[in-house]
């Protein structure tokens, strides 16, 4: 039984072999973008707000509120990145309930890509918010001796981000697969429920940790 979607080759575009991870990522992207485009095509600015717009606004307000609390700055500079991160991971995990679907987050390549994106986003936002010199100075705070520790910290937290999400989602998929083969009725359904909760929690954890990392990079030393 194959549980790594990277190894499931679905089709090829020329020399590019499209596996399940990439394909389902496209599906998730298509769902998110099309749903967003449809819902936001007729946004109401009046007193009466449509239900789906209300859902989106609630989500966006939650993301911006959390980001503002963590960073202490104008959240709208970070919301597109952090919001996309949270929404993508959430969608990937929640869509696991769809039959034949393989969550891209159960692929280490995907979680590593997301973690690397956060890894690069941290200095990017740090430099754009504080300037290059101030950002570089932060690696030498409170003492130049701390530089290697900062570097190790950056690398280790990136790895931990990737492994944490991958481990949780892969183990969940593995457990469901095992239960399906052992007890095909009822128990897999319960595990699917647990899987939904785990998926939501993991999305929240990834988003929170990413916002904390970015928040720490944009904050001036001593803040």
């Amino acid at each position: 039984m194959e549980i790594n979607p990277d190894n499931m080759e679905l089709f090829a575009i020329g020399a590019l072999k499209i596996n399940a991870t990439i394909f389902y990522t496209w599906i998730v992207m298509a769902v998110l973008v099309s749903a967003s485009a449809v819902i936001t095509s007729k946004l109401s600015t009046g007193k009466k707000v449509p239900r789906w717009q209300s859902v989106l606004e609630t989500f966006v307000t939650f993301i911006s509120g959390q980001t503002k609390e963590v960073t202490g700055r104008n959240p709208w500079d970070f919301v597109p990145f952090l919001g996309t991160l949270a929404l993508f991971i959430l969608a990937c995990n929640v869509m696991e309930v769809v039959p034949l679907y393989h969550p891209p987050t159960s692929s280490f390549s995907t979680t590593a890509a997301l973690a690397v994106a956060v890894f690069f986003a941290v200095p990017f936002f740090g430099i754009t918010q504080k300037g290059l010199w101030n950002h570089l100075k932060s690696y030498f705070q409170p003492s130049p001796i701390m530089l290697p520790f900062h570097v190790i910290s950056e690398l280790s937290r990136t790895v931990s981000l990737a492994v944490r999400l991958f481990g949780n989602m892969m183990s969940e998929s593995l457990m469901i697969a095992v239960f399906l083969s052992v007890v095909p009725l009822f128990i897999p359904l319960v595990m699917q429920g647990f899987g939904l909760i785990i998926g939501i929690v993991q999305a929240y954890i990834f988003f929170t940790l990413a916002s904390v990392y970015i928040g720490s990079s944009v904050s001036v030393h001593g803040e």
Binding site: M29, L32, V33, S36, A37, T40, L43, S44, T45, Q53, L56, E57, V60, T61, W76, V79, P80, F81, G83, T84, L87, F88
Partner: peptide
């Protein structure tokens, strides 16, 4: 995805809000 959601979701919702 960041680019598209920024264009179709966050940008529009922020503008509406």
């Amino acid at each position: 995805l960041v680019f598209l959601l920024n264009k179709f979701l966050f940008g529009r919702v922020k503008a509406a809000m």
